[in-house]
Amino acid sequence: MYAVVGCTNCSAMWLLSDAHTAESATCPRCGRTHQTKKLRHFVEESDREAARQARSALLAKRDGNSAAFADTAHVAKMERTLADDTQQVSDNEYLSGVGINPDAVENAAQSDDATRQSRPEIIRSAISSQDAPTEEDIISYATDRGVPTDAARELLEKLIRQGNLTESHGTYRLL
């Protein structure tokens, strides 16, 4: 048995599936706990779908939308239609439909992924992309990619201490 019940605190309406057996129910909107025997039962139905439809009708009536509700399909049918429609729309169709170029989005995502490196990764890239990188070359490369000069110097020292790279005669090499 399903009952459409209402909260005395916030006026929310919800379905209660065990209205006659449960001792208490909690309002999904405000969280207040009610004794089920004291809750007002607007409608009782044996079928869940019928109870959902009754709740929808009560909400429409309360909000002054009874005429609009009468013109709409059953709640379960609208739900199925919505589920069917959303499964048929691809991301590209959706983006195009709201006026966004899907190719531009894809290109932006790829370029963002390519440029999003951590500071240590930038230092490593600076070393691996050059034949005989000096400290000046590495710091210049890193600062061009947004790493502050002092941070680049500290990272070089840290990577050497950790044993990730070595420096010999002013030239750096990854290990």
Rank of each mutant, 00 (worst) to 15 (best):
V4P: 00
G6V: 05
N9I: 04
A12K: 01
L15H: 03
L16D: 09
L16I: 13
A19F: 13
H20R: 08
A25M: 02
A25K: 06
C27S: 11
P28L: 07
P28K: 05
P28G: 02
R32F: 12
T33V: 15
Q35S: 13
K38L: 07
L39K: 04
E44D: 15
E45R: 13
Q53K: 02
Q53N: 12
A54M: 09
L58T: 01
L58P: 02
L58M: 12
L59I: 14
A60K: 05
N65M: 15
A67Y: 03
F69E: 03
T72A: 07
T72R: 08
H74V: 04
K77G: 02
E79Y: 04
R80E: 13
A83C: 02
A83V: 08
D84Q: 15
S90A: 11
S90L: 13
D91T: 12
L95A: 04
S96L: 07
V105R: 10
N107H: 13
S111I: 12
D112S: 08
A114S: 10
T115M: 12
R116E: 10
P120L: 02
P120G: 08
E121Q: 15
I127C: 05
S128D: 08
A132L: 01
P133D: 09
P133M: 00
P133C: 04
T134L: 00
E136T: 10
S140V: 07
Y141I: 08
A142M: 03
A151W: 10
A152N: 08
R153Q: 06
E154Y: 11
L155S: 15
K158E: 15
L159R: 05
R161V: 14
R161I: 10
G163S: 09
H169M: 08
G170C: 02
G170R: 02
R173K: 10
R173Y: 09
L174S: 05
L175E: 09
L175C: 06
L175A: 03
